[in-house]
């Protein structure tokens, strides 16, 4: 299959066929991601332009590149760069694209990745653009679901901040391509925007909503937890109440399906009790690891290397 797009900006750019292609390639590369080194990207340079903090995304891209035999250029701290002199992102991209074979970018403004693609002579991979998109997170989520559960006929509950959470919007969009049965679980003030829900239904997803986490636990294949951010609540007691209602402990796991898995994009605060970590349902650390094969797959694709 020939990939139509050089840049990886938004999940909305992908067809189901393209997603499957990426997941298949990640599966091929997974053994290498678990420990090994190849020369697939020897001589290639990946630039990491992170204007905002990142642990998993940045480090897993670095790991992916190193496992494939390539090298990594890091922007370093903002203070040590021309950003403090007021250089625009557009100029930075024009310059860095002459130093590298691809750029991974995280920037606080929505639409910054798309703009970067307009100025770049090499592929741009969006590592998060404000409250906009984070496509590589969605792809690793899909990989986790396919590997640890199944993408077809999936019953999934997505829990937490469904109003502002960018990962959730991208994930539900992608799941709609697979006709998933999606239950949205959130407090009313963090409900998914109506427009997104209408969009999902129009694309073939079955979508329902509830405030009550416990009522869905025994009828799902995947429980996808997300962080509820304190700053979304003007009243701290309200936050405590909500955060408490959306916390998973081992007591919740009594009647769940045997093969139900729990996912979380991390970092977690206290949505998942640490005692759950050792249960057979926990998959969030595996999920985090699957970021490496997914990013290896994407790097080989955007750099035009066959695997």
């Amino acid at each position: 299959m020939r990939f139509k797009r050089r840049h990886i900006i938004s999940m909305k750019d992908f067809t189901r066929e393209e997603i499957d292609y990426i997941l298949d390639r990640a599966a091929k590369l997974e053994p290498l991601a678990r420990g090994g080194r190849s020369d697939l990207l020897a001589g290639k340079i990946l630039a990491l332009l992170f204007y905002e903090p990142s642990t998993r995304t940045r480090m897993s891209f670095e790991t992916a590149m190193l496992r494939l035999g390539g090298s990594v250029l890091n922007l370093g701290s903002k203070e040590a760069t021309s950003i403090v002199k007021g250089e625009t992102l557009a100029d930075m991209i024009r310059v860095v694209s002459t130093y590298s074979d691809a750029i991974v970018q995280r920037h606080p403004s929505e639409g910054s990745a798309l703009m970067a693609a307009e100025f770049s002579s090499v592929p741009i991979i969006n590592g998060g653009d404000g409250a906009g998109h984070h496509p590589t997170q969605t792809l690793l989520d899909l990989y986790t679901i396919r590997k640890e559960s199944h993408l077809d006929n999936l019953d999934i509950a997505i829990v937490g901040d469904l109003k502002y959470g960018r990962t959730v919007h991208s994930l539900t969009y992608a799941l709609s391509l697979y006709g998933a049965n999606i239950t949205l679980v959130s407090p009313p003030q963090l409900n998914m925007p109506d427009q997104i829900k209408a969009d999902l239904k129009a694309r073939g997803a079955r979508v329902s909503e509830t405030e009550n986490l416990e009522e869905v636990l025994d009828s799902i294949d995947v429980l996808y937890m997300t962080r509820i951010q304190k700053e979304r609540f003007p009243d701290p007691t309200e936050y405590k109440k909500v955060a408490g209602a959306y916390k998973i402990t081992t007591e919740h796991l009594g009647n769940v399906r045997d093969n139900m898995i729990i996912m979380h994009p991390l970092p977690r605060v206290n949505e998942i009790d640490s005692f759950v970590d050792t249960s057979s349902h926990a998959r969030y650390f595996e999920q985090s690891f699957y970021g490496v094969p997914i990013r290896m797959a994407l790097l080989t694709i955007v750099m035009g290397v066959e695997v």
Partner: peptide, 13 residues
């Protein structure tokens, strides 16, 4: 309308 949109910054866009 989004103050955080890249089109509302000093970028040449």
């Amino acid at each position: 309308i989004n103050p955080n949109c890249i089109s509302n910054t000093k970028e040449p866009v």
